[in-house]
Design a protein around this nucleic acid. Sequence first.
RNA 1: GGACGGGUGGGUGAGUGGCUAAAACCAGCAGACUGUAAAUCUGCCGCUCCUUGCGGGCUACGGAGGUUCGAAUCCUCCCCCGUCCA
Length: 316
Amino acid sequence: MSGGPGQAGARLIVVLGPTSSGKSALAIGLAERLAGEVLVCDSTQVYRHFDIGTGKVPVTKQRGIPHHLVDLVEPHEVFTAGEYRKRALEVLREVGLRGRTPILTAGTGLYLRALLEGLADAPERSERLRDRLRKKAELNGPEHLHRLLARLDKEAANRIAPRDTPKIIRAIEIRTLAGKPVGEIHRSGRKRLEGYAICKLGLEPARGALYARINARVEAMIASGWVEEVRGLVAQGIPADAKPFQFIGYSDLRSCLDSGSTAQDAVKRIQQSTRQFAKRQITWFRKEPDVKWLSGFGDDPEVLASATALAQASDA
RNA sequence: GGACGGGUGGGUGAGUGGCUAAAACCAGCAGACUGUAAAUCUGCCGCUCCUUGCGGGCUACGGAGGUUCGAAUCCUCCCCCGUCCA
């Protein structure tokens, strides 16, 4: 089939899986075989200057395949799932106009869902309101906000754990700004992505093998200059509370530099956080519908072969 | 050789007679998550049986004995670790 951009029939390939499962390699391989371009779906790679620790594919390894949705904002900016969706839709259209196949590499489940299933028609975040709520929480304890939510929106309060402050704040925010409870807004539907035949390929290496890869990859990142990168970011004056400094490894390495200890001290911790993160990704993706699971790493030629076959079969 | 301090579940570490399968934290496993998501939060976490219950049995606080209705908690001896004195 050869539908034009945006029309039913255009093909979209999604490669999803936990960190270090080889999504990038698989996506590039597929792109070479299927005249594709890569769309990154990763909440950390949208930040400029944070390259090594976020696992960006260096241009020299992209093999001429265009990579989109990377380096979109500066470290001090706040980026959201809604913003991602907006930008991704644009890129999706452009790639379609070029007659190329979009290949999405997804590590951030929420962003993937925001793009594919859409977001409800809820108000965007309001920093002022959130600042006020956070101050209240600091003053009266985290459960205070939950009690407040219970008064405003019983249903949401029942659903959200009393100490899950970020989600409580969002619920209060929506209730306040929209004047309606979250549940109601969610039930009113979301704008899902239309016009694409979507082929989802999931990478699912054995847990032990994945963890071993993660450990090795963290070492490799350090070897390729991660510490120097962090030193440079600090020198640029990027504050420690900037969003991307919350990403795995960056704060560890930063405090390493501050305390003068070696990076090796931080490596174990970084590996551990990364493993825990991978586990959460796995949990999220497990319930993703219609995924064709591949039990291996994306850089395995056999996995690439079966992925290619699956992608082509979905085209028929 | 002598004087103290200490040996607790995968790790750190509370607990000094019953409320203790043993706090808390970490790790691990499972899960939730519609706008900061590499975030945030929840559950489980000795083994085992079933009629899956604030259920039963077994094992467990270095080792062996002992005191007691009852011991991780008290006593005796032994082993190991740390610090200090010779």
